[in-house]
Design a protein around this nucleic acid. Sequence first.
DNA 1: TGAAAATGAGCAAGGACTCACTTAATAATG
DNA 2: CATTATTAAGTGAGTCCTTGCTCATTTTCA
Lengths: 191, 191
Amino acid sequence: MGKAEDTKARVERAALTLFVARGVAETTTKEIALAASVAEGTIYRYFPSKEQLAIDLFLRHHRALAEALGEAHRPLKGLKAKIEAIVRCYCEWADRDWTLFAYHLLNQHSFLIQVPDGTPNPVVVVREVIAQAMRAGEIPRRNADLAAAATIGVVMQPATYKVYGRFTGPLSSHIRFFADAAWAVLAVKEK
Amino acid sequence: MGKAEDTKARVERAALTLFVARGVAETTTKEIALAASVAEGTIYRYFPSKEQLAIDLFLRHHRALAEALGEAHRPLKGLKAKIEAIVRCYCEWADRDWTLFAYHLLNQHSFLIQVPDGTPNPVVVVREVIAQAMRAGEIPRRNADLAAAATIGVVMQPATYKVYGRFTGPLSSHIRFFADAAWAVLAVKEK
DNA sequence: TGAAAATGAGCAAGGACTCACTTAATAATG
DNA sequence: CATTATTAAGTGAGTCCTTGCTCATTTTCA
């Protein structure tokens, strides 16, 4: 790794850690510089603004996660297999870089509006898998957005509670439960 | 309503609306004053700081929701009935004052750490209902925090997506689905 | 030796909050 | 009742401080 890339990476990691611990607005550029062992001005060699640094961090993860989820389910046939692959991919992604994952989770509502059209989107990936399974008659038909939201909630709420410290240990240890629970939600029959 | 209480309420409502629309840190005291048709100094007659105003708003709702959920399920017997009552209460609560609800939803991670010990807590209410049902053998035993989180996610994730504008219409129209889906998650068997 | 990288004092902008003061409402008084 | 005194409510210009960002200067290193 070149010196410049190393410095850039240090700034990103420092910013990320502070953003998660104290929030984006509450983190100052001075603090980022200090945590990255760099002068404040150095940040501006690599990023045009603090805002852009925050957005870059978010978007990079957002896109990568969406692509990973897409590739995880695409080769498989059948909703059950796809759901399990998506859940596994999501949990492993979270466990691999928990700080980045937490940042993405906690800042969705700040940045989601700024996602350019056509950007791969994790929610849309899941929604499409579900909508397709409804068309194929694998699960009861209903509002696909609603079904996708409830299904995603089964995994994302536990992830959120892990961020809050309500649990410990890797998300991956619960893949079996998440996949079964997600399936159970999708299989709910209209009465 | 006395004049003073009316002013205080106007300030609170203005702050709430702005906090939801733009975030707490991004909302200035000038904007709050303007929206409440009040001078900036007037805010400080009723609240010691902007921060405290934000916390008050959060805590009041947090406590009230927890109590409402508790009362909704307490008279009932059996997990299925309790879950349905909790889901109904939660959805109606959200529909009744959507701005307040959205504020609470979007700012959990800022304020949850500041909740004083012993404060009624919506998550704990649900967790206890579930833990009790596990002890009674109504549903399979597993980590109660995990089960509670996944169950809550079934309702809260759709609520969150409604905040983001991904859907429209009252949450209450989906009570049936949420209750069935929540039950399905809890009934998932260990394999 | 020159370009790339890094520095950090300083600036302009904007923020939360204060406070000396005005206005409205209420009580006391003769 | 009219008048005055007392308190409550409201004001907004101004203070002080923090923040994001700049840029003239220095350091690093190929």
